[in-house]
Nucleic acid binder design. Sequence first.
DNA 1: TGACGTCAAGATCCG
DNA 2: CGGATCTTGACGTCA
Length: 438
Amino acid sequence: MRVSSERSPDRFRPFFGRQERRMSIGYACLALAVPGTSIKKCLIRNADGTRLRDLISRNLRALETMVDYNRESGIRLYRISSDIIPFASSPVNDVPWETEYREQLRTIGDKIRAAGMRVSMHPGQYTVLNSPNPETFDNAVRELLYHARFLDALHVGLTHKIILHVGGVYGDKKQAAQRFAYRYAALDERIRGRLVIENDDKCYHVEDVLSLGKSLMIPVVFDNLHHAANPPGVDSTDADWVAACRETWKAGDGPQKIHYSQEDPLKRRGAHSATIAADEFLLYMNGLPPEKPDIMLEVKDKNISALKCILCTEDRGIGALEKEWGCYKYLVLEHSQKAYQSIRQLLKDKAQYPALAFYSLVEEALAREPDVGSAVNAANHVWGYFKDIATATQKERFAGLMRDYAVGSVSLARVKRSLYALAEAYPREYLLKSYYFV
DNA sequence: TGACGTCAAGATCCG
DNA sequence: CGGATCTTGACGTCA
């Protein structure tokens, strides 16, 4: 099979069929351009039983919708948001959610297992197990227990992990690491069965984490961007560190996992990029040992990049690319009419699977600022869905918005919000799923 | 004391 | 009044 023409060097070539195992690529917490998947929360002062129950049932429905979407899209790795049960580890939440939502949790877990999906959870940077502050430590334990209870309530096995950073240094890294060690040893078995540790960008580099992982038998997640920001003194390649981390994953832990992200060139050092650049991703992947780990992407465009990376490493046929094109087309049109035409040409040959070429064209188009002409053209294409069914008021309103946009008195975002509202009012599934509105 | 990171909730402004 | 835009929250560490 061919991915792209001769202009694609070997090192960018995907590795279809070269793996012993089908690796999984996934995204964290929220699915973009998937209606009904937003996770809601509230301020702690408003968190009474009624409000919390409302949020929990909403959020579980959203989670189920995301799991459905993942299954339909063939995304087999997914991180569940810690906000799914708001204030779960705080005394303000006394809702017995495990029993009240037992059936729903069970159903979601069944779907996850049936789809062969692997889920994880990742308490934030404020869950600090090795803190010298007893209250912080206590909070961390309750937070970890909540995560373990949630995954237990889904009835998913111990390959579905909880990812944690080691914590703070407090002026003495050795002592702080020891405190992590004995506190880990005392944790509830429900937590220890799932806990894995990750290198961070400030305190504990991959060598520190590996040393803890080895002595405590905790699997280690390698994060490439944290590693770039906080490398150990030892000079070694990412591939070697990934291989070293792999040794910490025992049979019952499931396949090794890593976190992968790219730096946003326009932002502060260490900031996650808007999207994953496909060629750079393939270059990185091809540098890793042949047996690939599961890869959790940390990137702004979430599921969109996950699908991109999956389709660039797994031949799912031209139909999968055509489906993606359906989501991208108006967004591409907005940025570049030339790229729009090129991609249409590219996808005409149904015998090919030009995944990398497709995404390269998309990335190239999206990297350029849309000019007013292209943006107007794209908006009019979308308006085409409504121009015959809209009311007189809606027609007037849209025409007015377009006039105002053309003279610069209204933002493009405003125009798009208005079009999205129409897609909701006259339900147009196809448009509601479009990346045009992301 | 504020930066760090994250994103929606909540608050306020505007026409 | 509704929509747009600005600010806060919730967490802990460290400079």
